[in-house]
Amino acid sequence: MTTTTSSWDARKTELELPEEIDLQVEVANVGSRTLAILLDIALAGLVLFIVYTLMILFARNTADDWMTKLTSNAVTTLLILLIFGFQWVYFNFFEWLWNGQTPGKRLLHLRVIKADGSPVSGIDVLLRNLARPIDTMGPMGLLGLLMIFVSRKAQRLGDLMAQTLVIHEVAIDWSIFDQVVREAVASSSVTAPSIRLTAGQWELLHRYLSRRETFPDDTRQQLAESIYKSLKPAAKGTELERSTLPAQEWLIELARRT
């Protein structure tokens, strides 16, 4: 397993799958993990606030019938259980139920997985979350932050003990490949000699083409110019190299010939 550090906040790590291919995943950064925790705290805080308000309301109601007393006791008991539940149960329960996600993590597309790429089991979840008083809660959170920041795979103490990582799942947006289909139809009539682009160049060209409508005119022009400059060498030796078309049209022509 190797880890490449492209920049401090986008660490990628490779996991080896049973199918003998290396799976590249993006390790979640300090910022998104902190935000996920804050979202979880906000959610729990909201629930606690509602129950606390109920408790105060029932406590003020001094009517002496057994119904009121019973409800008041039940609400107070519930509050104690909820406070305990948030401290020790919340993270364990959700990460176990939702395969490594809490509500906060789900909103930010984070997920806990084992360091070997497999999904987390109940014991892994318990190990990483029971360590929270030492590396997440209150002032000890500083230790967790520091560890996520410096450790190679952004693991806090609990993650190291449970051998887990938190990854960022990039949503898959197939729309940038929609252009491929349209171009295929458009290019069927053109019989110019084809130009070979590298995969990276090809993708650059098609991303530009699929997104160009969304840019304002001057940005589109600038972008087309710079992509034109970087792709020009690829058209060497064809009539497209000598063509005097403006950059935008030139790129469309290029797409037809690849």
Binding site: L17, I21, L23, Q24, V25, N99, R111, I113, G117, S118, P119, I167, E169, V170, I172, W174, I176, F177, A199, G200, W202, E203, R207
Partner: peptide, 19 residues
């Protein structure tokens, strides 16, 4: 196709299925 977005997408897809 090293270095393409497609590769990243496929990684994500395989990871989800693997899970």
């Amino acid at each position: 196709y090293r270095g393409t977005t497609l590769l990243l997408f496929l990684h994500q897809l395989v990871a989800r299925a693997h899970n």
